[in-house]
């Protein structure tokens, strides 16, 4: 399961001289699609900077002519944003560290050893990866409640680890398998212990795979809504997605202040977009690795 780089098509280079009219038509179509697809993201950021008084108008402001930070100030005014940020960071940190550690050990077992039950384990992982939270979250709520862990960071993070581990095992398995065991053995012949060989040779080569998997885990935990909704019930224990929903609901009891809601959404979205752009290539290749032969 190696990463498949998105190769550039060479077809354009083989065209003879000039630009074909068809290319111009397709280019126009492509630009229009690009504008339409990015528009909601632009609209979120735009509305976050347009003063509330201008958003009241029936004619939308397509550009922040009088940009303001007041929507952002309003969104974080009561401090609940920072509380939710802290809880999101804590839940996500535990989920990332836990899932990467467990998945890494499992990936080592799968790609460095042949053992009874190996293929069954892989099959089960593939199935588990597909299970919808919708069909499990009531049971997970009852379980966390029975353990007395409702509204705790631990209760929610453990469920997150279970959701994230299967895919991270698949991702890391490919990376571990990509590093030949012979490298380690050569180092052992040269006098390093097995652990030493692993730490000095394999581990540094694995770093990109670990980073990619960690970012994947971060995105899953940071964006998760369904499980958080049932396991974090108190207002003091909300992750950012729950906080954003509460913020919209609170705003809707008056006239929804869309400027503030968009500012709040922007605050939640920006770190995710940045991380996502770093890791996306690996995510695509991970999910369809088998189907795209490189």
């Amino acid at each position: 399961m190696t990463a498949v780089p998105v190769r550039r098509s060479k077809r354009n280079a083989t065209r003879i001289g000039g630009v074909r009219p068809a290319t111009i038509v397709w280019s126009v179509v492509a630009v229009v699609v690009a504008i339409v697809w990015a528009f909601p993201v632009y609209w979120m950021v735009n509305s976050a900077f347009v003063p509330n008084i201008e958003l009241q108008s029936f004619i939308p402001k397509f550009f922040p002519v009088h940009p303001t930070w007041s929507n952002f100030a309003g969104a974080v005014a009561d401090g609940s944003f920072f509380q939710a940020l802290g809880i999101s960071l804590a839940v996500t940190l535990i989920a990332v560290v836990g899932s990467i550690l467990f998945a890494f050990l499992a990936a080592l077992a799968i790609s460095r050893f042949r053992f009874r039950g190996r293929v069954s384990f892989l099959l089960v992982l593939l199935f588990i990866q597909m299970l919808p939270a919708e069909a499990l979250f009531i049971a997970q709520y009852k379980m966390v409640a029975a353990a007395g862990l409702l509204d705790t960071i631990v209760g929610t993070s453990v469920i997150y680890i279970a959701y994230i581990v299967p895919f991270t095992v698949w991702m890391l398995r490919g990376f571990v398998a990509g590093i030949p065991a012979e490298l380690e053995e050569a180092a052992m012949v040269d006098g390093l212990s097995r652990t030493g060989a692993f730490l000095r040779i394999t581990f540094p080569l694995l770093a990109p795979g670990l980073v990619a998997s960690a970012v994947y885990a971060f995105l899953q935990a940071w964006n998760e809504f369904t499980v958080a909704l049932v396991t974090l019930t108190s207002d003091q224990m909300q992750t950012l997605p729950l906080w954003l929903r509460g913020f919209v609901q609170a705003s809707a009891t008056r006239e929804t202040d869309w400027g503030q809601v968009m500012a709040a959404s922007t605050l939640v979205a920006i770190p995710v977009i940045v991380f996502f752009l770093i890791v996306q290539g690996r995510l695509t290749s991970g999910l369809v690795a088998g189907a795209v032969k490189g």
Partner: peptide, 18 residues
């Protein structure tokens, strides 16, 4: 890049903007 932006949007932020 435009498709990536849409893909990267956290689901809750996407819902509020839509």
């Amino acid at each position: 890049v435009s498709l990536l932006l849409a893909w990267a949007m956290p689901i809750v932020a996407a819902m509020t903007v839509w």
